[in-house]
Simulated assay, not measured.
Amino acid sequence: MDDQVMAALAGVLEALRRIEAEWPDKPCSLAKLSKQAQRPMSVLRRQLTMLEEAGLVTLALEDGGVAGTVQFSPAGRQLAADIFN
């Protein structure tokens, strides 16, 4: 992956980490993460798919895939803590 893609994914992880710090043990809505990460939903969904394939997040999509929730996997939580602490 190029540096631009990595920076974009890091931005999503950082936003998810901030949200999780405020509301621990609760999945984050895609709408909330989209707003916090300042990304259109279509872009966010592609980035989350890449993070899910890497085993860093877990996605739970509702019918149609427009709404849903996301949360860190244990590996993603550890990576975020390593990067952002």
Results as ranks from 00 to 15, higher is better:
Val5Tyr: 05
Met6Ser: 10
Met6Lys: 13
Ala7Arg: 11
Ala8Phe: 02
Ala8Pro: 10
Leu9Val: 05
Leu9Phe: 00
Gly11Ala: 03
Gly11His: 07
Leu13Cys: 01
Glu14Cys: 05
Glu14Gln: 00
Glu14Arg: 04
Ala15Met: 07
Leu16Gln: 01
Leu16Phe: 11
Arg17Gly: 07
Arg17Leu: 02
Arg17Ser: 13
Ile19Gly: 03
Ile19Ala: 11
Glu20His: 07
Ala21Ser: 15
Trp23His: 07
Asp25Arg: 02
Lys26Pro: 00
Pro27Cys: 03
Pro27Ala: 04
Pro27Thr: 04
Pro27His: 04
Cys28Leu: 03
Leu30Gly: 07
Lys32Tyr: 06
Lys32Glu: 14
Lys32Gln: 11
Gln36Ser: 11
Gln36Tyr: 00
Ala37Ser: 10
Ala37Leu: 02
Gln38Thr: 09
Pro40Ser: 00
Met41Gln: 04
Leu44Gln: 09
Leu44Lys: 12
Arg45Tyr: 12
Gln47Lys: 00
Leu48Thr: 06
Thr49Ser: 10
Thr49Leu: 12
Met50Val: 13
Met50Gly: 03
Glu52Trp: 02
Gly55Trp: 02
Gly55Ile: 06
Leu56Ile: 01
Thr58Pro: 00
Thr58Val: 09
Leu59Lys: 13
Leu59Cys: 08
Leu61Pro: 13
Asp63Gln: 04
Asp63Leu: 04
Asp63His: 15
Gly64Lys: 08
Gly65Leu: 08
Gly65Tyr: 03
Val66Glu: 08
Val66His: 08
Gly68Cys: 09
Thr69Ser: 11
Val70His: 03
Val70Pro: 02
Gln71Ser: 06
Phe72Leu: 04
Ser73His: 00
Pro74Ala: 05
Gly76His: 02
Arg77Lys: 15
Arg77Met: 08
Arg77Ser: 12
Leu79Tyr: 09
Ala80Ile: 07
Ala80Cys: 08
Ala81Lys: 07
Asp82Pro: 00
Ile83Met: 11
Asn85Lys: 14
